[in-house]
Amino acid sequence: MTQETLKPQEKAALIELLYQMGDDDFILSFRGSEWLGLAPHIEEDVAFSSISQDMMGHANLYYRLLEDLGEGEADRIAHLRTPDQFRNAIILEEVNGPGTYLKEPEYDWAFAVVRNYFYAVHKQIRLDSLRHSSYEPLAEAARKIMTEQYYHLMHWEVWFKQLMTSTDEAIGRMNAAVEKVWRDFGGVLTLGPSYADIVKANFIDDEAVMKKRWTNKFEAVLKEVGAAYPGEPRMERGNGRNGVHTDDLKQALSTLSEVYATNPATGW
């Protein structure tokens, strides 16, 4: 399928899917960029900032596809929507810890590793499926993103396994982070209310199939590091794909658009 051959219902479903994936990357990239200068060592600062930059690039690719579908300029999409128009999963918008990125940040590295690793695994599954998407521009974008995603996944997997199997303190902190992320990670694994139309048009695999791939992977990984499998990932604070969000997203968006919103009409 191309832009010209999409039927209206298909187009609406595709737009929903692109917002979900673009917003997931956009908001988690922002949370990653807040870590700059605060990572456990300088090598990690270099690696993590590179990953955040890649993810911002991925969000940009999805927003460009939306632009092509008549959703307005990518910059307006990124900077001028209200929180209820965002479709990212709630767990991805959550703050890194107490404090702000400029003042007294008490950020939790265990939470960063777990959230990013869980997300990277899902993103890989999603991209594997998108490579065969019926919408050719999306399949092409996925193939581009995958070349970078490969390294992100490897990076977070190394961190996860190493910290899950080292000191008692690290294991304790990591398990607490797993428990915390698990409570809301179901929100990443859903395609939201337009699920049926998205799948029917073959834009991406069925969410149940992709979810199963994710849970299978984590049953194995958690077993490997000697941790218990906590059961079905939950969605306790609501579904971001429906536009339900927390104040953390509001705060993130006001930072992200602070300068642009002063004058969206001018060149910056």
Binding site: G37, L38, A39, P40, H41, P105, E106, Y107, W109, K161, Q162, L163, T165, S166, T167, E169, A170, R173, E224, V225, G226
Partner: peptide
């Protein structure tokens, strides 16, 4: 950040259990 991440440096220095 140096203080908050002390546990990470210790964990990296520790011997791997698996």
């Amino acid at each position: 950040s140096y203080k908050n991440n002390e546990w990470v440096r210790e964990a990296l220095a520790a011997k791997k259990a698996i």
